[in-house]
Simulated assay, not measured.
Amino acid sequence: MTFTAEQEALRDSVRKLLEREADPWPDLCEQIGVAALAVPERFGGLGAGTAELQVVAEELGRVLADVPFLGSAVLAVHAVLATGDDETCARLLPRLAEGTVGAVAWADAEGQWGDPACRASGSTVDGEAHYVLNGDEAEILLVVAGGSLYEVSGHRAVRTPAMDEIRRLARVTFDHAPARLLGPVDLAALRDVACAVLAAEQAGAAARALELTVEYSKQRHQFGRPIGGVQALKHRMADLHVLVETARSAAYAAPESSRLAAVAKVYCSEALATVAGEMIQLHGGIAITWEHPAHRYFKRAHGAAQLFGAPGEHLERVRPTVS
């Protein structure tokens, strides 16, 4: 797994900006152009690939940044591109590239992402979509209904409470909401891209959780020496290091095929859950305090595992079919 000089520069720029900005989204868009990464140059973007999106997502995952990157710069942009309609792309993509927040609605109340929760009839959309990333603050709301993508207005969006308070989710209700047909959309391909980028975010969160744990093991003393010097704990942290690195490899391999996207979703979900759980165990009592970030990584691990389908659902896509 190697990165180009441009990708490393992108990583460095994003990390430095996140270190100094409490509200990073405006500067991420204006100074680095993260919202424009996946937008083709002819529509005002940078024309980058999925790997660049993953580099940014990994850095955002490290600090659990509260920004609409996954919902807008990834999902909304790729949904619009999937329609293949130049007029739609020319109208919406420049706005998304500038940082206007977009959202894509399709999951149902049970968290099923395989089939759209809403239905279209003529020029209106009905139904209720759940777990809509940044749906309550989106200026451009896109809805998947049937095999097509619609731009909808006149909807009602309510932010829904979640275990992971940093991940902004919404429930969006449509009651004969005016809808504009944009074109067909391959929902499976859209979900594969989302899973690939989410996997990189999970790998970044796991890496940072492990770093914090290793740092703490060098500071916490028992019986006159750092707990990090205990052989059994060294072995546990070494195993976690291997888990994190293989998760990164799985994440960056995900764009190669739909099957590898499913592998990344399963493996990175399990990796982050394992590292976050060990983070709490190895920190001891301080890890269950509200002030310590361990609980945030633990919540992100379990919330992200369900996003775009639970690991078990994706595991079915990985298993070979028996004839």
Rank of each mutant, 00 (worst) to 15 (best):
A109M: 11
D85K: 12
R319D: 07
E87W: 09
R119L: 12
A109H: 12
A162H: 13
Q31H: 12
C268F: 03
A200E: 06
R296F: 08
A36I: 06
S258E: 07
A232G: 10
L240H: 02
E151T: 04
A109F: 10
W106L: 10
V275G: 00
S148A: 13
V263L: 12
V34N: 05
T83I: 08
S257F: 12
V158G: 09
E316D: 13
P161F: 07
A109E: 15
I32H: 07
L75Q: 00
E151S: 14
L133A: 11
D108A: 02
D12F: 13
G102P: 04
D175V: 14
L60K: 01
E110P: 03
V39E: 01
T213I: 00
R62Q: 11
H292S: 09
A287I: 01
E137H: 12
A203H: 00
G122A: 08
A238Y: 03
C118E: 03
V101Q: 02
S13Y: 05
V263W: 09
V318N: 04
G33A: 08
G204V: 00
L260C: 05
P68W: 00
C89M: 14
E21M: 13
M237W: 00
E110A: 15
A273Q: 09
G146L: 06
P184T: 13
H241V: 06
E59I: 05
E215G: 05
L233S: 01
H295V: 14
P94S: 09
R259P: 08
P161I: 09
